[in-house]
Amino acid sequence: MNNWFNIKRFWLVLRHEFGDAWVEIAIFVGILLVFSIGPSAFFRGGHDAAGFGASLITGTAIVLYYWVLASRLFANIQKTERRIGYLTLPASNAEKFYARLLLYWLLPTAIFFFPYPNSGMHTDIYVAHIILSLLIVEASLAVLFGTIFRRFGFLALILVEAAIVNGISAYFATHPRAFSNFDFSFVAWVMEYAGPDLENLGKLTFRVTAVPTVLNIGLARIIFSRKRLRRPVVNTEI
């Protein structure tokens, strides 16, 4: 039997891990459903003044939970007792990693973005593509941080990103010249690069999304393959 990846074993791991994941996926679907109905509907479309604020709040809630879910990829190895059972489960590191990735990231991504293209959420197609790209790349970062920090992955991600954003802000605040010279609009760059052809825009979005996403997931996969027990909490008196 293939030691690296075996479909039958992958299915067994998937079935095994679904017992852990289904509650969180169900909560995600529930949030999506609740926030898709009524005046504050995230996917309602249109930009009237009354709906925009509510739609922004619900949208933020959904996106945050989507990222938190991705960062909970290895919450099951937070406790030593559970970590022993999971790491000695007879499956390869790849099968365990991709089973959890499928349940905590790919499945929620599919559920989340299935209604997105027809939502009319962003009338500007360029902005829509940029946001889509950012959401997915950020989720892949959440997966990476979840692999490193497990249950507190999302918290660590927020702290790191806050530090980076504050660092950049502080730099521009203390270097007014640099700020005045900074004349870059990401949307304008996308519009110029992709041109009016939507196929080009699609290719650009795919590339901009795929490269960092694959890098983040690949790094997470390597880190996961080195997971072991930490210093035991018992029998260490010497």
Binding site: N3, N6, D20, E81
Partner: peptide
């Protein structure tokens, strides 16, 4: 290397464990 074939032929009962 935690090969699946090796893991399928051993079982560990730790002092403390967590059952779902």
């Amino acid at each position: 290397r935690r090969s699946p074939n090796a893991l399928a032929d051993l079982f560990i009962v730790p002092e403390e464990f967590d059952l779902p």
